[in-house]
Amino acid sequence: MQAVFWGVRGSYPVPGPETSRYGGNTSCVEIRTNAGERIIVDAGTGLVRLGEQLVQNGEQLGNFHLLLSHLHWDHIQGLPFFAPIYQQGTQVSLHALRSDVAKLPEVLRRVARHEFFPVSMDEWAARLDFHEVHAGRRFGASAFRVRPFRLNHPFGAMGYRIEADGTSCAYVCDTAPFFQVLHKKHFLRGPEPLSTADRRALQKLRSGLVEAIRGCDTVIYDTHYTPEEYERFPHFGHSTPDQALQVCAGQDVRCLVLFHHAPNHTDDQMDGIAEQYRALGAQLGMEVVTAREGMTLPVRGGT
């Protein structure tokens, strides 16, 4: 299996000379089996390039599986510009949380309709179907086995453990660490005091995540913030590389991929982060890779 990174940014796309090496497109990762089957995770602007390439290569498009972590703009805004959806004979199967599945056709119709995008969803040549995912309920998607698990993020987000070719890759994005409740459905102006029930819910979320990533060959993690930035925005729903390392340490994870970089992080800053956590990971016996747009990462199994 291999993971191809089409978009690695969080929040919004950042074109420009300061982000040209790590890339400016928002979240989109393609997971491929050795035989070339694919599953796509998230539909940020990185998806546009993937779509262009698929059409250019004239590949038999057939049925796509697209997993959505959640519906924040940086995870869906590439979808209306995904070229294969304008091709007859393509079928896109979208997998998302229950509340998102309920909202998705409406949101897509709305964003793809007059007020946002120039083409209405009815004009899409591809067939779209929607599938609800449930935490812990595994499902098959082409050659892949997928296990969804819940994350700590405003309005809820889903992580996915994806297995094929005897290897495994987890996508953990977007998520905050587990000190603050973020998965509730109201606006947080700042950190809120925790009740006992909140603490218990957070503990459960964290242990669900740890269990899902245990023994994973590669874990792609939302490490949006540096520790200093996190102190200023603990209620924004994202983690730091240190928090990702804490979650993965001791769980037999071989490779941690830092992902969903903050839009204000320049390439030079990212170089510093990459080197710092590569070294820290090495001390913990874990390979730490910082995601770059265009990067193809082999997902290697244990020996």
Partner: peptide
């Protein structure tokens, strides 16, 4: 300008499912 009115377009932009700000009123 929008056929449904500008407010409703902005409500869609800030819809809590797609935007963590939750509402333009925030």
């Amino acid at each position: 300008a929008a056929p449904v009115g500008l407010r409703r377009v902005l409500d869609a932009l800030f819809d809590p499912h797609v935007c963590p700000i939750n509402s333009i009123d925030n």
